[in-house]
């Protein structure tokens, strides 16, 4: 198997793992892990009160979506830039060698 086709296999695996659950469990609402965490502590230790509040409080799902998307977008942009730069550089080097 060439390197290229094994990369496609990798991508396929990632897609199946990430999107498979959406197909299998259609229509169910997916919970967030961190929330369950808090409920677990609150049920088992009802006396415990969190002693600090977040610096910027959670402003609801819309703002959350924006911030998480921004985080992923910025990171992906940086990665794409660097990987593209590397690719261009190595292709140029190959051309110069021939």
């Amino acid at each position: 198997m060439s390197k290229l086709s094994s990369n496609w296999l990798l991508m396929g695996g990632i897609l199946v793992l990430a999107l498979g659950p959406l197909l299998v469990l259609q229509g169910r609402e997916f919970g967030a892990t961190d929330g369950h965490f808090i409920t677990a502590i609150e049920t088992d230790h009802p006396d415990y009160k969190p002693w600090v509040e977040p610096v910027i409080k959670d402003s609801g799902p819309e703002v959350q979506t924006f911030l998480f998307a921004a985080q992923a977008g910025i990171g992906a942009g940086v990665m794409g830039y660097i990987l593209g730069l590397y690719k261009g550089r190595s292709e140029r080097r190959e051309r110069d060698e021939h």
Binding site: L17, A18, L19, G20, P21, L22, V24, L25, R28, F30, G31, A32, T33, H36, F68, A69, Q71, A72, I74, G75, A76, V78, M79, I82, L83, L85, Y86
Partner: peptide
């Protein structure tokens, strides 16, 4: 430095992605 930025960006992206899992929960 660029490779360092790549490694940083990789964690940055991945920790922003809440991926659905078979248990019906995202992490």
């Amino acid at each position: 430095k660029l490779l360092l930025a790549l490694a940083g960006a990789f964690t940055f992206v991945l920790s922003a992605l809440k991926i659905p899992s078979v248990t019906g929960s995202c992490s």
